[in-house]
């Protein structure tokens, strides 16, 4: 069942069909919300909030549009209005958390644990870096990279043309490469290996 069919069924009275949309888009929504809000609990609350709002607004969804684009337009607005005041402090908290994680010694009993710790740190570094971008680049990055929307869907969600989105994503990618690449190189031989 594609998104348009699921919406048709919900509008016809089959509320259960909404679960298809919840399951299909929940993870992308979570990644998007988590990027802004800084912790999983707030992200889960925001996902729930966005999906309930989407359900209640389904009558205004245009089936000719991408459902993902419509849904994430709601998400972008809701996260902005509900959590605007927290965003600045969360950016600082993200950096602090990344620092603390890097300083903790890790005893790896198996390689899987190492990669999990490294992935968590990589996620924190990525979120912190994205958080430093200007809003006109940050939101397209969050939609395209974190939520995994297509370029066209990202453009539709933001009310922009696809070329404008591509341009912003290109500049953002360069900026992120600079942020993540230029300050992380060790200047002395690695220490601590056994």
């Amino acid at each position: 069942m594609d998104d348009a069919e699921a919406v048709r069924r919900v509008l016809a009275g089959d509320d259960g069909a909404f679960r298809v949309l919840v399951d299909r888009h929940g993870n992308g929504l979570h990644r998007f919300c988590r990027a802004r809000l800084g912790n999983d609990d707030d992200a889960e609350d925001a996902v729930q909030d966005v999906l309930v709002r989407a359900f209640r607004s389904l009558g205004r969804y245009d089936p000719g549009r991408s459902f993902a684009a419509w849904l994430f337009a709601i998400a972008a607005n809701r996260v902005k209005t509900r959590y605007r005041a927290r965003f600045m402090e969360l950016r600082l908290a993200e950096r602090a958390q990344a620092e603390r994680s890097a300083e903790e010694p890790v005893l790896a009993l198996e390689s899987g644990v190492e990669f999990q710790a490294l992935d968590r740190m990589a996620a924190e570094e990525l979120r912190a870096a994205v958080g430093t971008l200007a809003a006109d680049r940050r939101v397209p990055v969050e939609l395209y990279y974190f939520a995994g929307l297509s370029v066209a869907e990202t453009a539709a969600a933001l009310g922009l043309g696809t070329e404008a989105v591509k341009s912003r994503l290109f500049r953002a990618r360069k900026e992120l490469a600079s942020i993540l690449g230029e300050t992380g190189q060790p200047t002395e031989p690695m220490k601590g290996r056994s």
């Binding site: 903790e104 010694p105 710790a117 490294l118 570094e125 992120l176 690695m190 220490k191």
Partner: peptide
């Protein structure tokens, strides 16, 4: 048991991993 490299190097690896995810 194995100890991971120091914090700066770990951070560098994490950032590289982040860039690889973007790629």
């Amino acid at each position: 048991m194995k100890r991971l490299p120091g914090s700066e190097d770990m951070r560098a690896q994490a950032r590289k991993r982040a860039l690889e995810a973007l790629d």
